[in-house]
Design a protein around this nucleic acid. Structure first.
Lengths: 225, 225
DNA sequence: TTCGGTTTTCAGCCAATGTTCAGCTTCGAT
DNA sequence: ATCGAAGCTGAACATTGGCTGAAAACCGAA
Protein backbone atom coordinates (compact mmCIF):
# COMPACT_ATOMS: atom_id res chain seq x y z
CA UNK A 1 0.00 0.00 0.00
CA UNK A 2 1.51 3.29 -1.05
CA UNK A 3 0.76 6.53 0.72
CA UNK A 4 1.74 10.04 -0.28
CA UNK A 5 2.02 12.53 2.54
CA UNK A 6 2.06 16.20 1.58
CA UNK A 7 2.92 18.23 4.65
CA UNK A 8 5.36 21.06 5.20
CA UNK A 9 5.86 20.87 8.97
CA UNK A 10 8.75 18.48 9.05
CA UNK A 11 7.92 17.28 12.48
CA UNK A 12 4.44 16.26 11.56
CA UNK A 13 5.63 14.79 8.28
CA UNK A 14 8.23 12.68 10.05
CA UNK A 15 5.79 11.55 12.68
CA UNK A 16 3.18 10.57 10.16
CA UNK A 17 5.73 8.76 8.08
CA UNK A 18 6.94 6.84 11.09
CA UNK A 19 3.47 5.86 12.14
CA UNK A 20 2.47 4.69 8.71
CA UNK A 21 5.64 2.78 8.04
CA UNK A 22 5.21 0.99 11.30
CA UNK A 23 1.86 -0.11 9.91
CA UNK A 24 3.49 -1.49 6.83
CA UNK A 25 2.69 1.27 4.36
CA UNK A 26 5.19 2.49 1.82
CA UNK A 27 5.37 6.24 2.37
CA UNK A 28 6.51 9.11 0.17
CA UNK A 29 6.72 12.57 1.66
CA UNK A 30 6.51 15.89 -0.16
CA UNK A 31 7.26 19.08 1.74
CA UNK A 32 5.60 21.45 -0.69
CA UNK A 33 2.40 21.46 -2.68
CA UNK A 34 4.37 21.62 -5.88
CA UNK A 35 6.39 18.52 -5.06
CA UNK A 36 3.24 16.80 -3.97
CA UNK A 37 1.50 17.53 -7.21
CA UNK A 38 4.43 16.22 -9.16
CA UNK A 39 4.69 13.02 -7.15
CA UNK A 40 0.99 12.40 -7.42
CA UNK A 41 1.28 12.57 -11.19
CA UNK A 42 4.31 10.33 -11.36
CA UNK A 43 3.07 7.54 -9.11
CA UNK A 44 -0.10 5.69 -8.32
CA UNK A 45 -0.88 5.96 -4.60
CA UNK A 46 -3.52 4.17 -2.66
CA UNK A 47 -4.12 7.17 -0.39
CA UNK A 48 -2.98 10.76 -0.25
CA UNK A 49 -2.68 12.59 3.07
CA UNK A 50 -2.82 16.29 2.42
CA UNK A 51 -2.16 19.29 4.61
CA UNK A 52 -4.16 22.40 3.75
CA UNK A 53 -1.62 25.09 4.43
CA UNK A 54 1.26 24.43 2.10
CA UNK A 55 3.94 26.43 0.38
CA UNK A 56 3.46 26.34 -3.38
CA UNK A 57 0.07 24.98 -4.22
CA UNK A 58 -2.25 24.68 -1.24
CA UNK A 59 -4.13 21.56 -0.26
CA UNK A 60 -7.49 22.60 -1.64
CA UNK A 61 -6.05 23.36 -5.04
CA UNK A 62 -3.93 20.26 -5.15
CA UNK A 63 -6.94 18.13 -4.40
CA UNK A 64 -9.07 19.97 -6.91
CA UNK A 65 -6.40 19.50 -9.55
CA UNK A 66 -6.24 15.81 -8.89
CA UNK A 67 -9.96 15.41 -9.39
CA UNK A 68 -9.79 17.69 -12.39
CA UNK A 69 -7.55 15.28 -14.17
CA UNK A 70 -9.66 12.31 -13.19
CA UNK A 71 -7.54 11.03 -10.33
CA UNK A 72 -9.87 9.70 -7.64
CA UNK A 73 -7.28 8.45 -5.21
CA UNK A 74 -8.77 8.77 -1.70
CA UNK A 75 -7.64 12.01 -0.03
CA UNK A 76 -7.43 12.62 3.70
CA UNK A 77 -7.05 16.30 4.58
CA UNK A 78 -5.15 17.55 7.60
CA UNK A 79 -6.08 20.81 9.21
CA UNK A 80 -5.04 22.98 12.14
CA UNK A 81 -7.34 23.24 15.07
CA UNK A 82 -9.35 26.30 14.40
CA UNK A 83 -10.89 27.79 11.35
CA UNK A 84 -8.51 27.21 8.49
CA UNK A 85 -10.56 24.37 7.25
CA UNK A 86 -14.06 24.75 6.21
CA UNK A 87 -15.23 21.18 6.24
CA UNK A 88 -17.66 21.86 3.46
CA UNK A 89 -14.97 23.37 1.33
CA UNK A 90 -12.68 20.39 1.87
CA UNK A 91 -15.31 17.93 0.86
CA UNK A 92 -16.30 20.19 -2.04
CA UNK A 93 -12.88 20.02 -3.54
CA UNK A 94 -13.20 16.26 -3.47
CA UNK A 95 -11.51 15.23 -0.25
CA UNK A 96 -12.83 12.02 1.21
CA UNK A 97 -12.23 12.74 4.86
CA UNK A 98 -10.42 15.19 7.07
CA UNK A 99 -8.65 15.21 10.40
CA UNK A 100 -7.91 18.06 12.79
CA UNK A 101 -4.46 18.51 14.28
CA UNK A 102 -3.21 17.47 16.62
CA UNK A 103 -4.19 13.85 16.23
CA UNK A 104 -2.74 10.56 17.38
CA UNK A 105 -1.32 7.79 15.22
CA UNK A 106 -4.02 5.44 16.20
CA UNK A 107 -6.67 7.78 14.88
CA UNK A 108 -4.75 8.62 11.74
CA UNK A 109 -4.19 5.01 10.85
CA UNK A 110 -7.80 4.19 11.58
CA UNK A 111 -8.98 6.89 9.18
CA UNK A 112 -6.63 5.77 6.48
CA UNK A 113 -7.75 2.20 6.84
CA UNK A 114 -11.33 3.34 6.63
CA UNK A 115 -10.60 5.10 3.34
CA UNK A 116 -8.83 2.07 1.96
CA UNK A 117 -11.69 -0.13 3.00
CA UNK A 118 -14.07 1.98 0.96
CA UNK A 119 -12.06 1.67 -2.21
CA UNK A 120 -11.02 -1.92 -1.60
CA UNK A 121 -13.75 -3.46 0.50
CA UNK A 122 -13.22 -6.65 2.48
CA UNK A 123 -10.72 -7.14 5.26
CA UNK A 124 -12.20 -5.63 8.33
CA UNK A 125 -9.67 -5.70 11.12
CA UNK A 126 -10.41 -7.17 14.50
CA UNK A 127 -7.94 -8.20 17.13
CA UNK A 128 -8.01 -11.13 19.50
CA UNK A 129 -5.88 -12.32 22.37
CA UNK A 130 -7.22 -15.41 24.02
CA UNK A 131 -10.85 -14.71 24.81
CA UNK A 132 -10.35 -10.97 24.53
CA UNK A 133 -11.86 -9.43 21.43
CA UNK A 134 -11.39 -5.91 20.14
CA UNK A 135 -13.03 -4.40 17.09
CA UNK A 136 -11.83 -0.86 16.35
CA UNK A 137 -14.26 -0.37 13.53
CA UNK A 138 -17.33 -0.87 15.66
CA UNK A 139 -15.58 0.20 18.84
CA UNK A 140 -16.48 -3.05 20.56
CA UNK A 141 -14.63 -4.90 23.22
CA UNK A 142 -15.54 -8.26 24.67
CA UNK A 143 -14.11 -10.79 27.10
CA UNK A 144 -15.62 -14.14 26.19
CA UNK A 145 -19.15 -13.00 25.45
CA UNK A 146 -19.34 -10.25 28.03
CA UNK A 147 -19.41 -6.78 26.49
CA UNK A 148 -17.09 -4.26 28.06
CA UNK A 149 -17.69 -0.53 27.85
CA UNK A 150 -14.54 1.49 27.33
CA UNK A 151 -13.98 5.20 26.97
CA UNK A 152 -12.21 6.53 23.88
CA UNK A 153 -8.81 6.73 25.52
CA UNK A 154 -9.10 3.41 27.21
CA UNK A 155 -10.02 1.90 23.90
CA UNK A 156 -7.06 3.43 22.09
CA UNK A 157 -4.64 2.18 24.70
CA UNK A 158 -6.08 -1.30 24.53
CA UNK A 159 -6.07 -1.25 20.75
CA UNK A 160 -2.41 -0.35 20.77
CA UNK A 161 -1.60 -3.06 23.28
CA UNK A 162 -3.47 -5.74 21.43
CA UNK A 163 -1.92 -4.79 18.12
CA UNK A 164 1.36 -5.55 19.79
CA UNK A 165 0.20 -8.48 21.86
CA UNK A 166 3.02 -10.61 23.19
CA UNK A 167 5.49 -7.75 22.82
CA UNK A 168 6.73 -5.38 25.43
CA UNK A 169 5.65 -1.84 24.69
CA UNK A 170 7.17 0.98 26.68
CA UNK A 171 5.15 3.69 28.32
CA UNK A 172 6.74 6.14 25.94
CA UNK A 173 5.61 4.19 22.91
CA UNK A 174 2.10 4.10 24.23
CA UNK A 175 2.23 7.80 24.92
CA UNK A 176 3.54 8.62 21.47
CA UNK A 177 1.04 6.46 19.71
CA UNK A 178 -2.14 7.02 21.63
CA UNK A 179 -1.82 10.65 22.62
CA UNK A 180 -1.20 13.55 20.25
CA UNK A 181 2.37 13.79 19.32
CA UNK A 182 2.30 17.22 20.85
CA UNK A 183 1.35 15.80 24.23
CA UNK A 184 3.80 16.84 26.91
CA UNK A 185 1.98 16.04 30.09
CA UNK A 186 2.79 13.63 32.86
CA UNK A 187 3.68 10.18 31.51
CA UNK A 188 2.04 8.83 34.63
CA UNK A 189 -1.14 9.07 32.67
CA UNK A 190 -0.25 5.82 30.98
CA UNK A 191 -0.14 4.10 34.34
CA UNK A 192 -3.51 5.55 35.17
CA UNK A 193 -5.05 4.16 32.01
CA UNK A 194 -3.42 0.80 32.46
CA UNK A 195 -5.14 0.74 35.80
CA UNK A 196 -8.49 1.61 34.27
CA UNK A 197 -8.10 -1.16 31.75
CA UNK A 198 -7.12 -3.69 34.37
CA UNK A 199 -10.18 -2.83 36.38
CA UNK A 200 -12.37 -3.31 33.35
CA UNK A 201 -10.90 -6.15 31.37
CA UNK A 202 -8.92 -8.17 33.91
CA UNK A 203 -10.11 -7.92 37.48
CA UNK A 204 -13.76 -8.88 36.95
CA UNK A 205 -12.56 -12.00 35.15
CA UNK A 206 -9.71 -12.81 37.51
CA UNK A 207 -7.28 -12.50 34.66
CA UNK A 208 -3.95 -10.74 34.37
CA UNK A 209 -3.62 -10.18 30.67
CA UNK A 210 -1.86 -6.84 31.06
CA UNK A 211 1.51 -7.60 32.54
CA UNK A 212 3.98 -5.10 33.91
CA UNK A 213 7.56 -5.59 32.84
CA UNK A 214 9.30 -3.41 35.35
CA UNK A 215 11.76 -1.07 33.76
CA UNK A 216 10.58 -1.98 30.27
CA UNK A 217 6.88 -1.40 29.87
CA UNK A 218 3.72 -3.47 29.55
CA UNK A 219 2.78 -6.56 27.65
CA UNK A 220 -0.62 -7.89 26.71
CA UNK A 221 -0.49 -11.67 26.99
CA UNK A 222 -0.97 -13.11 23.52
CA UNK A 223 -3.06 -15.88 25.00
CA UNK A 224 -5.32 -13.50 26.86
CA UNK A 225 -3.85 -14.04 30.32
CA UNK B 1 23.26 -2.51 7.30
CA UNK B 2 25.18 0.74 6.99
CA UNK B 3 25.26 3.30 9.73
CA UNK B 4 26.69 6.79 9.63
CA UNK B 5 27.80 8.20 12.96
CA UNK B 6 28.34 11.96 13.13
CA UNK B 7 29.95 12.80 16.45
CA UNK B 8 32.88 15.02 17.31
CA UNK B 9 33.90 13.63 20.67
CA UNK B 10 36.38 11.04 19.47
CA UNK B 11 35.95 8.95 22.53
CA UNK B 12 32.21 8.61 22.11
CA UNK B 13 32.55 8.13 18.37
CA UNK B 14 35.03 5.31 18.86
CA UNK B 15 32.89 3.66 21.47
CA UNK B 16 29.79 3.83 19.34
CA UNK B 17 31.64 2.49 16.34
CA UNK B 18 33.01 -0.42 18.29
CA UNK B 19 29.63 -1.26 19.71
CA UNK B 20 27.86 -1.12 16.39
CA UNK B 21 30.49 -3.04 14.51
CA UNK B 22 30.25 -5.74 17.12
CA UNK B 23 26.59 -5.89 16.19
CA UNK B 24 27.43 -6.46 12.60
CA UNK B 25 26.74 -2.99 11.25
CA UNK B 26 29.04 -1.35 8.74
CA UNK B 27 29.94 1.95 10.35
CA UNK B 28 31.24 5.21 8.89
CA UNK B 29 32.25 7.95 11.26
CA UNK B 30 32.33 11.69 10.55
CA UNK B 31 33.87 14.01 13.12
CA UNK B 32 32.35 17.21 11.81
CA UNK B 33 28.96 18.22 10.53
CA UNK B 34 30.46 19.16 7.21
CA UNK B 35 31.99 15.72 6.72
CA UNK B 36 28.77 14.14 7.83
CA UNK B 37 26.77 16.07 5.30
CA UNK B 38 29.12 15.08 2.53
CA UNK B 39 29.09 11.41 3.45
CA UNK B 40 25.33 11.38 3.70
CA UNK B 41 25.14 12.67 0.14
CA UNK B 42 27.68 10.22 -1.22
CA UNK B 43 26.29 7.07 0.33
CA UNK B 44 22.99 5.49 1.15
CA UNK B 45 22.83 4.67 4.84
CA UNK B 46 20.20 2.69 6.65
CA UNK B 47 20.44 4.86 9.76
CA UNK B 48 22.22 8.06 10.73
CA UNK B 49 23.30 8.67 14.32
CA UNK B 50 23.71 12.38 14.82
CA UNK B 51 25.16 14.43 17.64
CA UNK B 52 23.64 17.89 18.07
CA UNK B 53 26.70 19.89 19.02
CA UNK B 54 29.06 19.65 16.12
CA UNK B 55 31.79 21.74 14.58
CA UNK B 56 30.79 22.91 11.11
CA UNK B 57 27.12 22.29 10.53
CA UNK B 58 25.23 21.36 13.69
CA UNK B 59 22.99 18.37 14.04
CA UNK B 60 19.73 20.20 13.65
CA UNK B 61 20.78 21.79 10.40
CA UNK B 62 22.26 18.64 9.02
CA UNK B 63 19.05 16.80 9.67
CA UNK B 64 16.95 19.60 8.25
CA UNK B 65 19.10 19.65 5.12
CA UNK B 66 18.69 15.93 4.65
CA UNK B 67 14.92 16.19 4.79
CA UNK B 68 14.99 19.24 2.58
CA UNK B 69 16.54 17.26 -0.20
CA UNK B 70 14.08 14.41 0.29
CA UNK B 71 16.36 12.07 2.18
CA UNK B 72 14.27 10.29 4.81
CA UNK B 73 16.92 8.01 6.20
CA UNK B 74 16.01 7.39 9.84
CA UNK B 75 17.92 9.78 12.11
CA UNK B 76 18.71 9.16 15.77
CA UNK B 77 19.86 12.29 17.59
CA UNK B 78 22.31 12.26 20.47
CA UNK B 79 22.15 14.94 23.09
CA UNK B 80 23.84 15.92 26.32
CA UNK B 81 21.89 15.53 29.49
CA UNK B 82 20.45 18.93 30.14
CA UNK B 83 18.99 21.58 27.98
CA UNK B 84 20.91 21.53 24.72
CA UNK B 85 18.21 19.54 23.08
CA UNK B 86 14.70 20.58 22.95
CA UNK B 87 12.95 17.38 22.06
CA UNK B 88 10.37 19.24 20.10
CA UNK B 89 13.04 21.00 18.12
CA UNK B 90 14.77 17.73 17.28
CA UNK B 91 11.59 16.21 16.02
CA UNK B 92 10.77 19.46 14.21
CA UNK B 93 13.87 19.16 12.12
CA UNK B 94 12.74 15.69 11.15
CA UNK B 95 14.65 13.42 13.51
CA UNK B 96 12.97 10.11 14.17
CA UNK B 97 14.17 9.54 17.68
CA UNK B 98 16.65 10.91 20.16
CA UNK B 99 18.79 9.64 22.98
CA UNK B 100 20.25 11.47 25.96
CA UNK B 101 23.88 10.95 26.92
CA UNK B 102 25.08 9.04 28.66
CA UNK B 103 23.46 5.94 27.29
CA UNK B 104 24.44 2.31 27.12
CA UNK B 105 25.18 0.35 23.95
CA UNK B 106 22.32 -1.93 24.58
CA UNK B 107 19.95 1.00 24.57
CA UNK B 108 21.58 2.55 21.55
CA UNK B 109 21.43 -0.65 19.58
CA UNK B 110 17.86 -1.24 20.67
CA UNK B 111 16.84 2.19 19.41
CA UNK B 112 18.63 1.69 16.14
CA UNK B 113 16.97 -1.64 15.66
CA UNK B 114 13.63 -0.05 16.43
CA UNK B 115 14.22 2.54 13.72
CA UNK B 116 15.24 -0.12 11.24
CA UNK B 117 12.21 -2.16 12.12
CA UNK B 118 9.99 0.76 11.23
CA UNK B 119 11.37 1.02 7.74
CA UNK B 120 11.77 -2.73 7.27
CA UNK B 121 9.10 -4.32 9.41
CA UNK B 122 9.00 -7.93 10.60
CA UNK B 123 12.02 -9.97 11.63
CA UNK B 124 11.99 -10.08 15.35
CA UNK B 125 15.16 -11.33 16.91
CA UNK B 126 15.34 -14.21 19.33
CA UNK B 127 18.42 -15.86 20.69
CA UNK B 128 19.02 -19.46 21.63
CA UNK B 129 21.80 -21.41 23.25
CA UNK B 130 20.95 -25.03 23.75
CA UNK B 131 17.61 -25.10 25.55
CA UNK B 132 17.98 -21.51 26.69
CA UNK B 133 15.72 -19.07 24.87
CA UNK B 134 15.81 -15.28 25.03
CA UNK B 135 13.39 -12.95 23.27
CA UNK B 136 14.16 -9.25 23.74
CA UNK B 137 11.01 -8.13 21.97
CA UNK B 138 8.69 -9.80 24.41
CA UNK B 139 11.21 -9.71 27.22
CA UNK B 140 10.88 -13.45 27.68
CA UNK B 141 13.42 -15.94 28.90
CA UNK B 142 12.95 -19.69 29.03
CA UNK B 143 14.98 -22.76 29.86
CA UNK B 144 13.33 -25.65 28.06
CA UNK B 145 9.73 -24.68 28.60
CA UNK B 146 10.11 -23.17 32.03
CA UNK B 147 9.60 -19.42 32.05
CA UNK B 148 12.20 -17.45 33.97
CA UNK B 149 11.51 -14.00 35.37
CA UNK B 150 14.42 -11.62 35.02
CA UNK B 151 14.79 -8.01 36.06
CA UNK B 152 15.71 -5.38 33.50
CA UNK B 153 19.41 -5.44 34.31
CA UNK B 154 19.61 -9.17 34.53
CA UNK B 155 17.93 -9.38 31.19
CA UNK B 156 20.35 -6.95 29.59
CA UNK B 157 23.34 -8.84 30.87
CA UNK B 158 21.97 -12.14 29.64
CA UNK B 159 21.06 -10.64 26.31
CA UNK B 160 24.60 -9.44 25.92
CA UNK B 161 26.04 -12.82 26.88
CA UNK B 162 23.82 -14.79 24.57
CA UNK B 163 24.48 -12.48 21.66
CA UNK B 164 28.09 -13.46 22.14
CA UNK B 165 27.49 -17.06 23.08
CA UNK B 166 30.56 -19.24 22.82
CA UNK B 167 32.81 -16.19 23.06
CA UNK B 168 34.63 -14.93 26.08
CA UNK B 169 33.41 -11.48 27.10
CA UNK B 170 35.33 -9.50 29.68
CA UNK B 171 33.74 -7.88 32.67
CA UNK B 172 34.70 -4.55 31.23
CA UNK B 173 32.89 -5.25 27.99
CA UNK B 174 29.80 -6.21 29.89
CA UNK B 175 30.07 -3.08 31.96
CA UNK B 176 30.52 -0.85 28.94
CA UNK B 177 27.72 -2.44 27.03
CA UNK B 178 25.06 -2.87 29.61
CA UNK B 179 25.67 0.11 31.85
CA UNK B 180 25.96 3.75 30.80
CA UNK B 181 29.18 4.93 29.25
CA UNK B 182 29.61 7.13 32.23
CA UNK B 183 29.11 4.44 34.83
CA UNK B 184 31.94 4.67 37.31
CA UNK B 185 30.75 2.46 40.09
CA UNK B 186 32.24 -0.73 41.41
CA UNK B 187 32.95 -3.22 38.58
CA UNK B 188 32.11 -5.91 41.07
CA UNK B 189 28.56 -5.28 40.07
CA UNK B 190 29.08 -7.48 37.05
CA UNK B 191 30.00 -10.36 39.32
CA UNK B 192 26.90 -9.69 41.34
CA UNK B 193 24.69 -9.92 38.28
CA UNK B 194 26.42 -13.01 36.99
CA UNK B 195 25.58 -14.54 40.31
CA UNK B 196 21.94 -13.53 40.01
CA UNK B 197 21.76 -15.05 36.57
CA UNK B 198 23.37 -18.29 37.68
CA UNK B 199 20.87 -18.58 40.46
CA UNK B 200 18.01 -18.10 38.03
CA UNK B 201 19.02 -19.79 34.82
CA UNK B 202 21.57 -22.40 35.87
CA UNK B 203 21.26 -23.69 39.41
CA UNK B 204 17.61 -24.75 39.31
CA UNK B 205 18.40 -26.79 36.22
CA UNK B 206 21.75 -28.15 37.39
CA UNK B 207 23.42 -26.50 34.48
CA UNK B 208 26.54 -24.39 34.21
CA UNK B 209 25.97 -22.42 31.06
CA UNK B 210 27.73 -19.32 32.36
CA UNK B 211 31.36 -20.23 32.67
CA UNK B 212 34.05 -18.19 34.37
CA UNK B 213 37.26 -17.81 32.42
CA UNK B 214 39.56 -16.68 35.16
CA UNK B 215 41.45 -13.57 34.24
CA UNK B 216 39.52 -13.15 31.00
CA UNK B 217 35.81 -12.92 31.66
CA UNK B 218 32.75 -15.06 31.16
CA UNK B 219 31.39 -17.26 28.43
CA UNK B 220 27.88 -18.46 27.79
CA UNK B 221 28.11 -22.00 26.50
CA UNK B 222 26.79 -22.05 22.95
CA UNK B 223 25.18 -25.40 23.60
CA UNK B 224 23.38 -24.13 26.67
CA UNK B 225 25.64 -25.79 29.23
C1' DT C 1 -25.53 27.28 32.74
C1' DT C 2 -25.48 23.04 34.84
C1' DC C 3 -24.48 18.34 34.95
C1' DG C 4 -22.23 13.82 34.18
C1' DG C 5 -18.79 11.54 32.23
C1' DT C 6 -14.06 11.57 30.87
C1' DT C 7 -9.39 12.93 30.98
C1' DT C 8 -5.48 14.57 33.48
C1' DT C 9 -2.77 15.86 37.49
C1' DC C 10 -0.93 14.94 41.85
C1' DA C 11 1.18 13.06 45.93
C1' DG C 12 2.02 9.39 49.04
C1' DC C 13 3.01 4.71 49.37
C1' DC C 14 5.16 0.33 48.64
C1' DA C 15 7.88 -3.18 46.81
C1' DA C 16 11.23 -4.48 43.44
C1' DT C 17 15.51 -3.53 41.91
C1' DG C 18 20.13 -1.70 41.71
C1' DT C 19 24.40 -0.91 44.12
C1' DT C 20 27.87 -1.17 47.61
C1' DC C 21 30.60 -3.57 50.74
C1' DA C 22 33.28 -6.72 53.46
C1' DG C 23 34.60 -11.14 54.27
C1' DC C 24 35.21 -15.54 52.16
C1' DT C 25 36.78 -19.08 48.69
C1' DT C 26 39.30 -20.66 44.81
C1' DC C 27 42.98 -20.76 41.71
C1' DG C 28 47.52 -20.79 39.99
C1' DA C 29 52.20 -19.36 40.27
C1' DT C 30 56.22 -19.77 42.88
C1' DA D 1 52.43 -25.21 51.02
C1' DT D 2 52.02 -20.46 50.74
C1' DC D 3 50.61 -16.16 48.98
C1' DG D 4 48.32 -12.81 46.27
C1' DA D 5 45.01 -11.95 42.86
C1' DA D 6 40.59 -12.89 41.07
C1' DG D 7 36.23 -14.19 41.80
C1' DC D 8 32.09 -15.39 44.84
C1' DT D 9 28.54 -14.39 47.98
C1' DG D 10 25.03 -12.65 51.28
C1' DA D 11 23.27 -8.88 53.34
C1' DA D 12 22.62 -3.96 54.03
C1' DC D 13 21.39 0.13 52.01
C1' DA D 14 19.67 3.47 48.51
C1' DT D 15 17.01 4.39 44.74
C1' DT D 16 13.59 3.99 41.43
C1' DG D 17 9.50 2.65 39.18
C1' DG D 18 5.06 1.65 39.40
C1' DC D 19 0.45 1.68 41.89
C1' DT D 20 -3.37 3.93 43.54
C1' DG D 21 -7.27 6.99 45.14
C1' DA D 22 -8.88 11.28 44.97
C1' DA D 23 -9.26 15.85 43.31
C1' DA D 24 -9.19 19.08 39.62
C1' DA D 25 -9.89 20.41 34.86
C1' DC D 26 -12.18 19.74 30.83
C1' DC D 27 -15.86 18.98 27.55
C1' DG D 28 -20.10 18.16 25.36
C1' DA D 29 -25.00 17.56 25.87
C1' DA D 30 -29.23 18.98 27.82
Amino acid sequence: MRVLVVEDEKRVAAAVRRGLEAEGFAVDVALTGTDGEWLSKENAYDVIVLDIMLPGINGYRLCANLRERGDWTPVLMLTAKDGELDEAEALDTGADDYLTKPFSFVVLVARIRALLRRSTPSQQLVYEAGDLYVNPTSHECRRGDVDIALTAREFSVLEFLIRHKGEVVSKLEILENVWDFAFDGDPNIVEVYIRHLRVKIDEPFHKASIQTIRGAGYRLAASGG
